[in-house]
Computed example of a mutant assay.
Amino acid sequence: MRQALHSVSDRMLGLFLPKARAGACACFPSDSHYEYRCAGFTYQRRWCRYSCTCNKTCDAWVTIGNC
């Protein structure tokens, strides 16, 4: 009975999560996020992404206000 329940739950999970996304990256819990900083008197942010090979790439810093 337990094996049948696990099989059904795996099928249901496969319907909601694409197979490519079901496996998580080994390095980071999230694959993208914003980073923030104060540079002088300006408050800035940038969008960063991690690949499953632990490489980090980020967009350019964008000013969003004052510190």
Rank of each mutant, 00 (worst) to 15 (best):
C48S: 06
A4N: 02
S30T: 01
A20N: 11
Y50R: 05
C27I: 03
R49E: 10
F16L: 15
Y36W: 08
D31E: 12
C27K: 03
P29Q: 02
Y50A: 11
S7K: 15
V8F: 07
S32G: 06
L17K: 13
Y36F: 06
R11K: 12
L17E: 13
T57C: 06
T42I: 07
G65F: 00
C27E: 03
C27L: 01
Y43R: 12
C54S: 04
V62I: 15
A26N: 14
R37L: 07
S7Q: 14
R2H: 10
G23D: 05
A60S: 15
C48I: 01
S32T: 05
Q44M: 03
V62F: 07
S7P: 01
T53E: 08
C52H: 05
N66W: 10
T57S: 15
R21P: 06
V8T: 11
A39N: 15
R49L: 02
R45D: 00
A22P: 02
C38F: 04
V62D: 12
R21D: 15
G14R: 12
Y34V: 02
I64V: 14
T63I: 11
C58F: 00
D59F: 09
L17T: 13
F41M: 08
Q3H: 02
S9D: 14
T63L: 06
D10Y: 12
F41K: 10
H6Y: 10
F28A: 10
D31W: 04
A60K: 08
K56Y: 03
C25M: 01
A24G: 04
T42C: 12
C54R: 01
T63Y: 04
L13E: 14
M12S: 15
V8M: 12
C58I: 04
F16M: 14
S30L: 05
D59W: 11
Q3C: 05
A4S: 09
Y36Q: 03
T53D: 11
G23Y: 03
S51Q: 00
F41T: 13
S7R: 14
T53F: 02
E35P: 02
F16C: 15
A39I: 08
N55Y: 05
P18H: 10
S32E: 08
C25D: 04
Y43D: 10
K19T: 05
C67R: 01
N55D: 10
A26L: 14
I64K: 02
A4I: 04
S7D: 13
I64G: 10
R2W: 07
D59P: 03
A22C: 06
R45W: 00
T63F: 08
F16T: 15
C48V: 01
A22H: 09
D10E: 10
K19L: 09
C52S: 08
T42D: 14
G23R: 05
R49A: 13
H6C: 12
S51H: 00
N66K: 13
Y43G: 06
H6T: 10
R11P: 02
Y50V: 02
A22E: 03
F16R: 13
R2S: 12
H6I: 13
